[in-house]
Computed example of a mutant assay.
Amino acid sequence: MKETTSFGLTITPIRAWTHIVDLPAFVFWHPSYRFRGTAAPDADVSLTFSLLKGELPLTTEARIIAYERAHRLAWQTGLGGIFALREEYAFAGTGAQTQVRHTIAVEGVLSPLGYLARRGLRKAMQAQDAALIRYLSKEARGNGLTVNRHRRLVRKAQLARKAAQ
């Protein structure tokens, strides 16, 4: 099973990609994902996500399977050939216009069970995309000037507090 959404942004592809590969910053915009680790080719990172409207947090390892500067970031998690979830953000565009394609694919022996949750997955992806659009729009407006040291220190402190929670 595979679901894909797409949307446009008024931000350059490299800036959009830079924000997506900042995995610890997902805490600022993503409704349910919390990453620990740094995105790099073939890196293993810790991923905590919520099921059942946030009542069942699950932590697993995710492997970065695509890391293409300004073009694509993808990760995969799961149980070998039994169940695998692959998520990808792909960026295309020129200048200050970027088209983002968000894809989630469920693979493996248990993948037919994904069809039962297809409607919920589609709604979750739309909520994730809307949150990303809000976050990147705010970042694009707020970063018109150079980022000063105070702002970086405040952001670093916010990340540390969120990680401690």
Rank of each mutant, 00 (worst) to 15 (best):
A39I: 05
H150S: 03
I20V: 15
F28E: 14
T103I: 13
G80S: 00
Q165D: 14
Q99D: 10
V109E: 00
E107A: 08
L85C: 10
E61Y: 07
A25C: 15
A124C: 02
A92K: 05
L116W: 07
Q128E: 15
V100L: 04
P112S: 07
V154D: 12
K162Q: 12
R72C: 08
A39N: 07
N148G: 10
Q99I: 02
G95Q: 11
R86D: 03
G120Y: 01
E87C: 05
R161H: 11
V106H: 04
E61F: 12
S32T: 08
L136K: 05
T103H: 07
A140G: 13
V147G: 09
A62P: 03
E68T: 15
S50F: 06
V21S: 02
G95V: 15
K2Y: 05
A70Q: 06
E139K: 03
G142T: 09
P41K: 02
R151P: 00
R151Y: 10
T12K: 15
R34I: 08
G81I: 00
A163Y: 03
R118W: 01
P31C: 03
Q97F: 14
A96V: 10
E3F: 05
T5F: 04
I14S: 08
G120P: 00
L145N: 07
S32D: 11
G37A: 00
A40G: 11
H102E: 05
E68D: 12
G95I: 13
I20R: 12
L145C: 01
F83P: 02
F91Q: 09
S111Y: 13
A124N: 12
A92E: 06
A130F: 10
E107W: 03
A25T: 06
S6Q: 15
V27Q: 09
Q76M: 14
S137P: 09
L47P: 06
D42N: 12
A131G: 07
A16R: 04
A62C: 11
L110K: 01
H19R: 13
E3K: 15
R36M: 02
I64D: 10
